[in-house]
Amino acid sequence: MLTIKNLHASAAGREILRGIDLEIKAGEVHAIMGPNGSGKSTLAQVLAGRDLYTVTAGKVLYDGNDLLAMKPEERARAGIFLAFQYPVEIPGVSNLYFLRSAVNSIRKARGLEELDAFDFLQVSDGKMKLLGMDPSFRERPVNAGFSGGEKKRNEIFQMAMLEPRLAILDETDSGLDIDALKTVADGVNAMRSPDRAILVVTHYQRLLNYIVPDFVHVLANGRIVKSGRKELALELEEKGYVGLETTVAY
């Protein structure tokens, strides 16, 4: 589904990604781990099309198409979803209106009929229940005045509504207490399916106890320095990133 080849990216003239290679197939869950500043979030943002970053070399194929040539909204419509590390506030716009516009713009792009207000409420009711969210969430302005946990939960709710093919979770565990973490993980696990791939970006192994990955990659200094099965995460938990970083030659 996603093929990343020798991806280099920089921001403000500083190279952050220094040659990433990664292959993700439908149905797989991959975890990217790494110390702060290793480029994890940059990778997530570059895949979503954030223009703060310039891709200087390499390519990314998504379903065989050149992902880097697509605008951010085209990527979203093609099924790429990014759960933000820092979800953005939009005052005055209700969650309901925002999400219904998003769902319908994506449905429209896929040639599906738009959901009317009634259908939308019905579909969203079920998904909110799953995430332990109060229906009043829909009436509140997008992320405005939300607690850190509510924002993260709202990201997963949006993901559930948008039904992406490739979901990228950027540090979704940060700022969550253990109960919220479990709820969010349940929400993500409920979306695992043979047609969908999930890329989990995280600093800590904790989240991976609940969202168990098929593959774990360690990112350091803008490169994947080690890849393995889920056991690798546990090994990292024990030994830390220190040893891995030193193996990277400049």
Partner: peptide, 17 residues
């Protein structure tokens, strides 16, 4: 960018905000 990532065009995003 947040709106775009949810499938909305820049125009729709500005107008919505």
């Amino acid at each position: 960018f947040y709106c775009q990532q949810r499938g909305l065009s820049t125009e729709d995003a500005v107008s919505m905000i």
